[in-house]
C-alpha cells in the first residue's frame, strides 16, 4: 500500500466529560459543529492529514470518554500517544481543577516525553466564563506546556491548536533523529536520508 503521508502522529484528547473533546475533534476533522452529539462511550479516533513545512502529516486523533469511571479502559489507549490535548471548559471551574488530575494520569500511563497542550474550550461563552484566561496561562506555564483557548462551536483557534501540537511533535522528532543519526556528508545526505529513517522511527512509535 502506497503511503500517502510522511509522518503519522498519534494524538489524544482527554479531559472531563462534557468539556467538548468530541466537538473539538469534529470541528477539526469535518469543520462542523453538531448540537445533537452524543457522549463518548469507550474510545474512537478520527484521521486528518495536514501539510506542515512541505511534509504530509497524518494525524490520528483519539477521542476518549471523560467520565472517571471509564478511566481504566481509556488509559489503555494512552500507549504510543505522541501528543496529548488536555481540554477543560472555561465555563466550568471543576473541569479546570481536574486538569492536574489528568496530568497525573498522563504521567502514569503515557510515555514521559509526550507533547502536551492545554485547551480552554467554549471560549465564545464569555458571559458564562468561570476560568479566566490568565489562570489557564498560569497553569500552562507551571507545567511548561502551551495553552490556547478555543471554541468548537464558533470555530475559534481549533486548527491553530492542532497545528501547534503537530509542529511541536515534528520538531521534537526531527531533533531526536538528528541526534541519533548525525549528518556525515553534509547537506546532500540529509536531503535523501530522512525519507527512510523517519518511517523507521515512527513505526516503532506507532507499533505500540
Amino acid at each position: 500500500m502506497a503511503k500517502t503521508y510522511d509522518y503519522l502522529f498519534k494524538l489524544l484528547l482527554i479531559g472531563d466529560s462534557g468539556v467538548g473533546k468530541t466537538c473539538v475533534l469534529f470541528r477539526f476533522s469535518e469543520d462542523a459543529f453538531n448540537t445533537t452529539f452524543i457522549s463518548t462511550i469507550g474510545i474512537d479516533f478520527k484521521i486528518r492529514t495536514i501539510d506542515l513545512d512541505g511534509k504530509k502529516i497524518k494525524l490520528q486523533i483519539w477521542d476518549t470518554a471523560g467520565q472517571e469511571r471509564f478511566r481504566t479502559i481509556t488509559t489503555a489507549y494512552y500507549r504510543g500517544a505522541m501528543g496529548i490535548m488536555l481540554v477543560y471548559d472555561i465555563t466550568n471551574e471543576k473541569s479546570f481543577e481536574n486538569i492536574k488530575n489528568w496530568i497525573r494520569n498522563i504521567e502514569e500511563n503515557a510515555s514521559a516525553d509526550v507533547e502536551k497542550m492545554l485547551l480552554g474550550n467554549k471560549c465564545e461563552l464569555e458571559e458564562k466564563r468561570q476560568v479566566s484566561k490568565e489562570r489557564g496561562e498560569q497553569l500552562a506555564i507551571e507545567y511548561g506546556i502551551k495553552f490556547i483557548e478555543t471554541s468548537a462551536k464558533a470555530s475559534i483557534r481549533v486548527e491553530e491548536a492542532f497545528f501547534t501540537l503537530a509542529r511541536d511533535i515534528k520538531a521534537k522528532m526531527e531533533k531526536k533523529l538528528e541526534a541519533s543519526n548525525p549528518p556525515k556528508g553534509g547537506h546532500q545526505l540529509k536531503a535523501t536520508e530522512p525519507q527512510r529513517k523517519p518511517t523507521n522511527w515512527l513505526s516503532r512509535c506507532t507499533l505500540l
Binding site: 466529560s17 462534557g18 445533537t36 452529539f37 452524543i38 467520565q67
Partner: peptide, 14 residues
Amino acid sequence: KNLIEKDVNRTDRT
C-alpha cells in the same frame, strides 16, 4: 447532577 445535565442534552436528540 452535572453529569446528568450534560448527558440529557446528548441523548437521542435526533
